[in-house]
């Protein structure tokens, strides 16, 4: 696989990270080494093997489908970016 600065820049933009030129060079080199090493898992035969999303069996737990009281906690107090009862942010 060709790991180059264009690919790493694209990954950074997707991750909402701005990289300096030095960072881009450094991370590209490291990507080559790390992804190269991680690629060893391609040697393992996994045909018909189920994915392990969790290490132990997890069962969905659903609460009764009814409205709950507001928890009384004012999360908005944690930010200065608010207007009345809403968060205020730049345009998406």
């Amino acid at each position: 696989m060709d790991i180059n600065t264009d690919l790493v820049r694209f990954v950074a933009e997707t991750s909402r990270l701005k990289l300096s030129r030095d960072e881009l060079t450094k991370f590209t080199e490291e990507f080559k080494q790390v992804i190269g090493a991680f690629s060893d898992i391609s040697q393992v035969k996994t045909g018909g093997v189920e994915k392990a999303l969790h290490p132990v069996k997890i069962t969905n737990v659903l609460r009764k489908d009814s409205s709950l009281k507001k928890n009384g906690v004012d999360n908005l107090k944690l930010t200065k970016h608010k207007k009345q009862d809403y968060y205020e942010g730049p345009v998406l």
Binding site: F38, S39, I41, S42, V44, T46, V49, E50, K51, A52, L53, P55
Partner: peptide
């Protein structure tokens, strides 16, 4: 498929 999904299957093994 090559990395994340594959790793989840290897994890099972």
């Amino acid at each position: 498929d090559q990395y994340y999904d594959k790793a989840l299957r290897v994890r099972r093994l």
